[in-house]
Design a protein around this nucleic acid. Structure first.
Lengths: 394, 394
DNA sequence: ATGCTGCATGCAAACGATTGAAGCATAGCA
DNA sequence: TGCTATGCTTCAATCGTTTGCATGCAGCAT
């Protein structure tokens, strides 16, 4: 309808001059009608409604409740004649029966759905987390429903997402959501189980959480850097919300300040950068740090995303990593192994955290147990982006 | 489990607290019993069950159907006394009523849920796609349900995921799923609308698809490389399934072969690499190519993931990009701008594709219209990873 | 009074499944 | 033959909503 002015850019000419415009609104939108324009004869009505248990029952000459018992396989309660069972199963298979989860859920049965509310799916870290959680959930017969909190989107949307969550048997919250109090509150009203992952280790009232030991991770990185001889170390931490640093990152920052003091190392002016948690932020903060009168010899980025941005900025400024400056990250994204140079980072026990989180969400039926905070230990992975400070800085 | 023998680089000193439990009642992960050992008397029962319309009705002295009419705001059908309406609304608000989407859906109402089945959420490209789709869906009041096809996981799992899809008003398929015929077949039986994105432009029988014009993208890259003077160009294409190249990538490869022939450029032995579509595959194929007797002067990677892996391998082999070899990608991941050097790539009109796909899924109520294939035009983004071939190769 | 018109509301039947209890053969036992 | 035990199946209530239809009750014209 709207795209009637199709432009045959497809292979009309086979020269297809590439539009070299860096940012094209892409006006051409070739729409190829799939069906060759024969008449409109046949009505679309392609598929016959999904059969219900009632249909199966009629077709196999039993009652609908028998069908239910056969199909759900409830062997303990009442016995079913094997012949009947077989017949019903055959008919169901033939009619391509599929249960309606809505109806099933209405009666209170488990929906076998696990809700996952994630702040930013484009953050590769959380994408990996969703993957890990999804695997673990599948392994237990659950499917994952992804709710996208979408950064600082209007709370109303988050709220709506929550409304829908009554589909789910349990909910996993990925990343700090403490800036969305209404969401948390709503969640607490529900009588389904809620587990927070990567919420930071400050206990969120009323829900269990699984987090990584941020302090241990930062300590590992700092130990590594100081072992190499670094003294001037800067911190880059991003991810804001209403002026507050988000959970995990806030903790990493606090740990940094704390542990630097413990080690007797000074933190020079402007050595603490606060930027958005993305590649651009990492690059920007790197430039800012290197333009300081006394630049740091090492940068501890609170996420790999920031570290990768910083490494890119280093290349752009013709600085060699780690010869001129060391850069270390946190999260150990898959990408960390493939930067130039490969990134020293802190690996989170992703699979284990997913397993623990899913287990907490599923196994603890109902909101019975008291909320629990679990901290899992990370480990430092040393690669190429960290080395001794330049001689000039000794 | 798997990471038990993590490199113990962590931090040998200072209180090797592997697993520091922070919060009180639970010693570790021992699900604290809900009630301290008195009888089985009190159930955990923390929050009072979510109220139903029935409850609201009782509390405000009207019938349940009136409550329904008030809360759903159906003004056209039957009039409601403003006073009554106000009273009901107030009671509902006070009792924190929330509709049960299951029951609502059971009656046939739209669930306002959009199913998205994605092959690999860890592929940053698809993560971005999910993000774009999610935004677009939210804009239209829909929420996104993510089904994880999980690579080559057993079809049964995909199947199960589909079973659950009866929650959804429509389904989006991300990435080529033609290797899962059973899934497609199942989907076709359903009477909900299915739209495929990035399925390649071969029409999938029965469903509408939205794809990018792969040929145009490859043509743009090739034009760029030949303009620079490259003649020995290799192709790296990954993403297998049962020995077959997946849709988009297969098309890119075909376009490459075709357009190289058109340009009169020979394709030397082993210049076509087939590897898995990930960073490792990109790095491996780069090494293989560079070890050929006559290595290429440029590499056209079918995805940015592969290109990034290749760039990493170049650094590891002490080769300079683009001085020694040019590398170009396809997809224009966010990361492409932040590699060293920044990657020349093909940008897909992500937002537009998401919009078109969501519109096709939602607006076209029911499977009425004939399936449509839409091709959107990409554009080349030139950055730093492509340059003229080395003099020695001229 | 008797209809008639309209507004405001209630009744009750869906929707598709689960599940306790009841029905009904048939077999076993006295 | 009568009575119970047993094995299989059906009945019917239920979950929380939506929605077509009936109903009650005004006011108003006959």
């Amino acid at each position: 309808m709207t795209d009637s002015k199709a432009k045959p850019a497809t292979r009309a000419k086979r020269t297809v001059v590439a539009r070299r415009v860096t940012e094209g609104p892409a006006p051409s939108r070739t729409t190829a009608p799939a069906a060759p324009g024969n008449g409109v004869t046949t009505a679309p009505q392609r598929q016959s409604r999904i059969p219900t248990m009632q249909d199966i029952a009629r077709a196999s000459g039993v009652s609908q409740s028998t069908v239910s018992r056969v199909l759900t396989g409830a062997p303990t309660v009442v016995p079913i004649n094997p012949a009947t069972r077989e017949r019903v199963l055959e008919v169901a298979r033939q009619m391509r029966y599929r249960p309606n989860p809505l109806a099933r859920g209405l009666r209170g049965a488990r929906t076998m759905l696990l809700g996952v509310i994630v702040r930013e799916i484009t953050d590769p870290f959380f994408a990996g987390a969703v993957d890990a959680i999804s695997s673990e959930a599948n392994r237990r017969g659950y499917n994952v429903v992804l709710g996208h909190a979408h950064g600082k989107t209007d709370e109303a949307i988050a709220l709506r997402a929550v409304l829908e969550t009554r589909h789910c048997d349990a909910i996993l919250l990925l990343g700090d959501t403490s800036d969305q109090p209404r969401l948390l509150e709503d969640l607490r009203d529900t009588n389904i189980n809620v587990v927070g992952l990567w919420q930071g280790s400050v206990p969120v009232p009323g829900i269990s959480t699984v987090s990584v030991d941020n302090r241990a991770g930062v300590a590992g990185l700092l130990a590594h850097l100081t072992d190499l001889g670094h003294k001037r170390i800067a911190f880059v931490g991003g991810g804001f919300s209403e002026g507050r640093l988000l959970g995990d990152i806030g903790e990493r920052r606090a740990a940094f300040l704390d542990l630097m003091a413990d080690a007797g190392l000074p933190i020079l002016d402007n050595y603490i950068c606060e930027v958005e948690n993305n590649l651009r932020g990492g690059a920007a903060s790197f430039e800012a740090l290197m333009n300081l009168p006394v630049p740091p010899t090492a940068i501890l980025a609170s996420t790999d995303l920031l570290a990768i941005g910083a490494i890119h900025a280093a290349g752009r400024m013709n600085m060699m990593v780690p010869r001129d400056v060391s850069i270390v990250g946190f999260d150990d994204l898959p990408m960390a192994e493939y930067t130039n140079p490969a990134l020293t980072s802190v690996r989170q026990p992703m699979a284990e955290m997913a397993a623990v989180g899913v287990r907490a969400a599923i196994d603890i039926a109902g909101p019975g147990g008291a909320p629990v905070v679990q901290l899992l230990a990370p480990s430092v992975v040393v690669r190429e982006s960290s080395g001794p400070p330049p001689d000039s800085a000794r």
